Every structure is written in C-alpha cells, then in structure tokens.
Simulated scan of single mutants.
Amino acid sequence: MKTKVAVLGGGSWGTALSVLLSKNGIDTGIWVRSEQQSETMIKKRLNSKYLSDIILPDTLRINSDLSRIIDDSSIIVLAVPTHSVRELLQDLQGKITSEQIIVNVAKGIENSSKKRISEIVYEYFPDNRFVALSGPSHAEEVALDIPTTVVSASTNKEVAEHIQDVFSCSTFRVYTNPDVIGVELGGALKNIIALGAGISDGLGYGDNTKAALMTRGIYEMSKLGVALGADPDTFSGLSGIGDLIVTCTSMHSRNRRAGILIGKGYSLNEAIEEIGMVVEGIKTTRSTFELAGDIGVEMPITKEIYNVLYKEADVRESVGKLMGRSRKHEMEIVATNKKTSW
C-alpha cells in the first residue's frame, strides 16, 4: 500500500512534520481543529499562528474534517498536546482500521491516569502498531531544514524501521529503538527539568547551577524509567540526554521560557498566559510527582518544582532544600541487568 500520512494537529510541531513529509514526497494531510485556521492556511499557505515564516507546500492537504484527512492513510501522526490525546483517540474510534500505524510525537504523561501516551493509545486501539517519535527537535528548526536527529521507538522492529524510512531525509536523521517506555519517559520528563533550568536562569544563577540541575535531572529521569521497566541506556541517548540538553538551553523551549518567567516572579498562570502556547512540562510535573509517589521513587528536583508550581513554594527556598539534602555518594545504583531488545 502506498504511504499516505495524516498528521493530526495544527500546532508548530504538527506543521513542521507535515512540511518535512511533503518535501520527502510523501502524500501528507494535516488536520487542523479550527475551520477558520484551516481555511486561512489553505488560502495563505502559512500557519501564521505557529510557524509564520514557513511556506506550506502546495502538495500538503489541509482540512478541519478529521475523516477526510485520515481517509486511506497508512500512518496517523498524533501531534496534539498530551491532555488532548484521549479526546482525539475517542474521535478516531470507528474511523480507522487496525492496519494503520499510529505515531505519537507529543511528550507528556496524562494527569488523570498518569499513563504514557502508548498506554492510552492501546486502551482504544490495542491491535494497532505504535511508534513514539521523539528526540531533540524544535519545530522551528526542523521547518527550516536545520540538521536534526530523532528516535523511532516501537516494540515492532519492522514498524520502527518503516517510520525511520518515511521521515528520514538529508536534514532529518532517524534512529530506531525498541524501548518505547524509555523513549516516551525521556521526552516527557525532560520538560520538568527544563522548567527548573528556566527557573534557575530567571533567578540569575549561572552555568554551574544549570549543569548540576541537568546532570542530576537525567539521573532522576533514569531512576523513574528503570522502575517502570525502561532500559537505563535509553536515557543516555537522543530521547534522554539529547532532548534534555536542547530543552534546557534553547529559547525555542516553552518549558525553559516559562521557567524563566517563574524565576523572575511571575505566577504560574501569568507565565502560561505570557507563553501563549501549551507548556507540556507544567502538567507533566504533576503527573510525575504523583506517579513517583505511587511507586516509591524519590525525585527531589521534580518534587521541588512541583511545590513551586502547585504549592506556591518560594523558589529560593526550594533551591535551598535541594542544596541542603543529606550528603550521599554520587553514583547510586540505577541500572538493572534487564535489556530491552527486539
């Protein structure tokens, strides 16, 4: 069957991937929830709200009718925020077959269920093959053909490699990985640490602080990952430390920018309003804090960021709590002998 892709979500990432796929010669359609936005994109060949400088290829199909976009598609890309995934999957029920591959590109953990997106997908479509596409990849740079590398993660090797082939080009290199749990958690949890990195910047702290935060942050990420069945090595890769680096250091990062504002004294709601787009790490902080508590994993950085966001804790006092924790050896045992492979 000829490859035909339906990208569901008209934000910056969905738009960037739609442009990429169209340039790759793939028959691609993008679903935009707003009929008005869809009509404007068709007329102007621009997504003025999110990627205003990127011309949309003439071959890219744009529609606000979900059924028309997914019709005959072989691949469905979920490119909506994490909190919207369940509603979208409910809308897709009865509209897709088990032969269609579902690819998720959102990075988060659902608040109500504390589930990863693959787990939510399998609630509704247990027979469909699933891929998590993740890594250090700002939409603004991908849309400009700036060299980028990501990971295609699936429990099915052939499907992971198929998505690798579909998305790969001279500026977008895709690796494969069987560790869906680790890849999903890396993409979600790094947003929490990026909020912390932004808060550090907003407070006027320096490079030493950010380096410490990122290093101990990746340890926290891997510790939770191992407890949930991930391969610890995944957190040393693109979807772990790679995504962590780009999100903690770039001004493209909404999470870092929101953190900067909070560090400067903005309230959570003020920071969200100022950013004007979804900041995935804010909801993911709550989910992760609660999940870690449920399974007994200690995550001190996540805990203090949670307290700042949801308990109105004083930011400098939270930093003091982290710095004043009981002394310990750096290299606590995280790894297990379990390896995920095909």
Rank of each mutant, 00 (worst) to 15 (best):
P126S: 06
Q100D: 03
V174N: 07
L56H: 06
C169P: 07
S64H: 12
P178A: 01
V180D: 01
I70P: 04
P147N: 10
E119L: 05
F130D: 00
S154I: 00
P57K: 08
S52L: 12
P136W: 03
I62Q: 09
E140Y: 02
I96F: 02
R68Y: 12
E119Y: 01
F130E: 00
S73I: 02
K107L: 02
F125K: 01
V150L: 04
K115T: 03
R116S: 10
D91T: 06
D145L: 14
S134A: 12
R129K: 15
C169G: 04
I146P: 00
S112R: 14
V174Y: 09
S170H: 14
K49W: 12
T171Q: 12
I146T: 13
T82G: 04
V131M: 09
E141K: 12
S84A: 15
E158P: 03
D179H: 08
E110I: 11
V180S: 03
P178E: 03
Y50I: 08
N47E: 06
K43G: 02
Q100M: 12
E140A: 09
N104D: 09
Y122M: 13
L60E: 06
D165V: 06
Q90T: 11
D72M: 12
A143G: 10
D53C: 12
N111P: 00
D91H: 14
F172I: 09
I55Q: 14
R45W: 13
L66W: 07
F167P: 01
I102W: 05
H162Q: 14
N128S: 03
R116N: 05
K95T: 01
N104V: 07
S134V: 02
R129G: 07
Y122H: 14
